[in-house]
C-alpha cells in the first residue's frame, strides 16, 4: 500500500526522513534537502558574495552531492560565488585513479574548473610508494597529514577564498565519538565547528555545508538524482578503531534515528573544563606551513620517508626536530628506534 507524501499529499512517498520521520515524495525530498543545506549556509554565514569557493572533490557520494547542491543553490539563491573543484591525487592505484575519473566527469557535468594536486608532485612520494616503506599500520597518518596540506596548496594555486568539504552529519557524530574514545578533548571541542577561521598564511578557511545532512539522505539524494559517484573504500584503510565507532553509530541510529543529531548537539554543548592547553600556532621553519612545532608534521613525515626512518613522524619525537633542522646526525640508538616498522 503506497504511503502518500506528508508534504504535498499528492505523490507517493519514496523515503522516510531519519531526521524528522516525515514521509516525502521525490520532489518534496529534493526541495527539503536542498533548502536545509541553504539554511545551514545562511545561518552560519558560510560565504560572502563574490568569494571564490573550492569544493574538495573526491568522487565519493558526499563530495559529489556537495558539488551538485552548491552549484544549484548558488544559482537558485544568487550567492554570487565562483565555484571550483579541487581534488587530491594520493597516488593509490585502483582506488584514486578510478575515483578521479568520476571527478573529471563531474567537472564536465557541472561545468566547474578542476584542479588536481598530487602527492607525487608535492612531496615526491605516492601513497603506493609510502605504503611500501611504512606498511599498512601507520599509512593513514601520512595520507591524512599530506592531504590537509595538499588541499591548502591546491586552494592557493587556484586562489580560492574558502574550501568546503563533504563532511556530513554522520561523519561529525562519528568524530565526536572517536574523540571521546580517544580522550582528545581539544579536538572534541573543535570537531563540531561548522567552519574554521583562517589560521594563518597558507591555510585556507574550511567549512562543512552538509554538517547537518544525514548520510542516508545524501545517499538517497544521489540515488534518486542519479548522480555519478564512486563507491569503493580506500584499499589501504585498516582503521579498525574508527570501525568500532562507525558500527556503534549505525546501531544507535537504528534504535533512534535522531541519535546522530543528538550526538552533534552534545558535542556542540559539551561542558568540559575550561583552560585545556592548546598548542601555540607558529609556522614550519622549513616550508612555512602552519605548525605548532619547529617543523610541521608533513615535513617531519617527509624527512622520515626520505631518510628511511618512517617512524620519525609517528609518536612524539619533537626533541629531534632541532637536530634534523641543523642536519646533525642521529645517534645509532635513535636511528634504530625510528626504523622498526610493524607490519
Amino acid at each position: 500500500m503506497p504511503v502518500l507524501c506528508s508534504s504535498c499529499s499528492e505523490k507517493r512517498a519514496v523515503l522516510k526522513r531519519p531526521k524528522t520521520g516525515h514521509s516525502l515524495c521525490k520532489a518534496c525530498f529534493f526541495w527539503a534537502f536542498e533548502e536545509e543545506v541553504h539554511r545551514t549556509i545562511v545561518a552560519a554565514k558560510l560565504f560572502r558574495p563574490g568569494e571564490t569557493v573550492g569544493i574538495a572533490a573526491s568522487g565519493g557520494k558526499d563530495s559529489t552531492v556537495l558539488a551538485h547542491v552548491m552549484k544549484l543553490l548558488n544559482e537558485r539563491h544568487g550567492y554570487g560565488l565562483e565555484l571550483m573543484l579541487i581534488s587530491v591525487d594520493e597516488g593509490i592505484t585502483g582506488y584514486r585513479d578510478d575515483s578521479l575519473e568520476t571527478v573529471k566527469r563531474n567537472q564536465q557535468q557541472y561545468e566547474l574548473p578542476l584542479k588536481i594536486v598530487s602527492y607525487e608532485e608535492l612531496y615526491g612520494w605516492t601513497m603506493d610508494a609510502i605504503v611500501k616503506q611504512v606498511g599498512l599500520k601507520n599509512n593513514c597518518t601520512f595520507c591524512g597529514v599530506f592531504r590537509r596540506q595538499a588541499l591548502d596548496r591546491g586552494a592557493i594555486m587556484l586562489k580560492v577564498d574558502k574550501i568546503c568539504t563533504g563532511h556530513n552529519a554522520d561523519d561529525v557524530a562519528e568524530t565526536v565519538l572517536m574523540n571521546i574514545l580517544r580522550g582528545d578533548i581539544a579536538r572534541l571541542r573543535r570537531c563540531t565547528a561548522i567552519s574554521t577561521a583562517s589560521e594563518g598564511d597558507g591555510v585556507v578557511p574550511r567549512c562543512k555545508p552538509l554538517k547537518y545532512a544525514y548520510e542516508k539522505e545524501i545517499v538517497l539524494y544521489a540515488y534518486f538524482k542519479k548522480l555519478d559517484y564512486f563507491s569503493t573504500e580506500c584499499i589501504y584503510s585498516p582503521n579498525a578503531y574508527r570501525g568500532y565507532a562507525r558500527t556503534f553509530l549505525k546501531d544507535l541510529e537504528s534504535i533512534r534515528p535522531s541519535s546522530i543529531m543528538d550526538i552533534i548537539h552534545s558535542g556542540e554543548n559539551l561542558s568540559v573544563r575550561e583552560g585545556v592547553k592548546m598548542p601555540v600556532q607558529g609556522t614550519c621553519s622549513r616550508c612555512g606551513y602552519i605548525s605548532s612545532q619547529a617543523l610541521c608534521k608533513s615535513c617531519v613525515l617527509l624527512e622520515g620517508l626520505n631518510r628511511g626512518l618512517p617512524k620519525l613522524g609517528i609518536g612524539k619525537h619533537h626533541r629531534l626536530h632541532e637536530k634534523i633542522l641543523s642536519q646533525q646526525p642521529l645517534t645509532e640508538q635513535e636511528e634504530r628506534k625510528l626504523k622498526s616498522v610493524d607490519f
Binding site: A13, V14, L15, K16, S23, L220, F224, K250, S254
Partner: peptide, 16 residues
C-alpha cells in the same frame, strides 16, 4: 540488513 545499508522497494524506502 546490516545497519548502514539502505533498502528500496520499487524505488521507495523500505521503511515505508
Amino acid at each position: 540488513v546490516r545497519p548502514g545499508i539502505l533498502v528500496l522497494i520499487n524505488d521507495a524506502d523500505w521503511e515505508l
